[in-house]
Amino acid sequence: MSALVRALRAERIKLRHTLAAWMVPLAPGVILLLSLVQLGFAHVPPPGPTDPMAAWKHFCQGMFTLWLFLMLPLFITLQAALLAGLEHGHHQWKHLLALPVPRRTHFMAKLCMLMAMVAASTLLLAVATPLVGWVIMQLNPAQGLTGSPPWAWLVSRALAIVAAGALMALQGWVALRWQSFTVAVSVGTAGMVSGFLIGQSDRLGHWFPWSMPVQVFLRDGVHLWFVLVAGLVAGVAIAGFALWDCSRREYD
């Protein structure tokens, strides 16, 4: 078994009983619950489209806007800090890095685990969105969510996790590189706030890591392919740099 697979299995054990593990269902769960409460008990029909397919898209877009603009950057920031904090907090590096395992393996496993958790949450949101839509229809048929959910649209928007590659690698590096939880959270918060503003710019929005994910549907997805490719390429490049930088560091 390769060292990376073994390190990933070890990471899975370390996540038992942790907030980071609970965050995977909780983060999309909050969005789903808010939508359910807001739309399921609304007394007036939405001002949006009356065509069922358009109503579904409107509903899904609202869900994903909340996720990609607000929750995802916050989620990535916290998950990266929590995952790295497992090792920083109890001075684990001196144990892990004294094992006869290549140094980069530990850092690679952390980045892979971060990406897997973000992907799992995003996919959970994509899969649960139609289910919540169905529940809303039972509670409040005026919302017009009839017919089949737009699965293709949901799947394509779930690709935002690829567009978030650069952001995940960047936050992962910051969290692993600096032992302070505050540094990782400060960088993430500053990036998220900047992302709100920059993300609305047609010229810069698709270049800024914190606003790249939301570009998958902003302006009708005009930058979709750019952010997918750029997110992937920049993510791999930043992850490569992170592995190099963390592996050469002497940890306490």
Partner: peptide, 22 residues
């Protein structure tokens, strides 16, 4: 080295299991 490197939220066995896997 200095203090033992342990994950306090895990059982003793899980701590060992994480290292065994590595």
């Amino acid at each position: 080295v200095e203090t033992p490197s342990l994950y306090p939220h895990l059982s003793g066995r899980d701590n060992l299991e994480a290292t065994r896997l590595l």
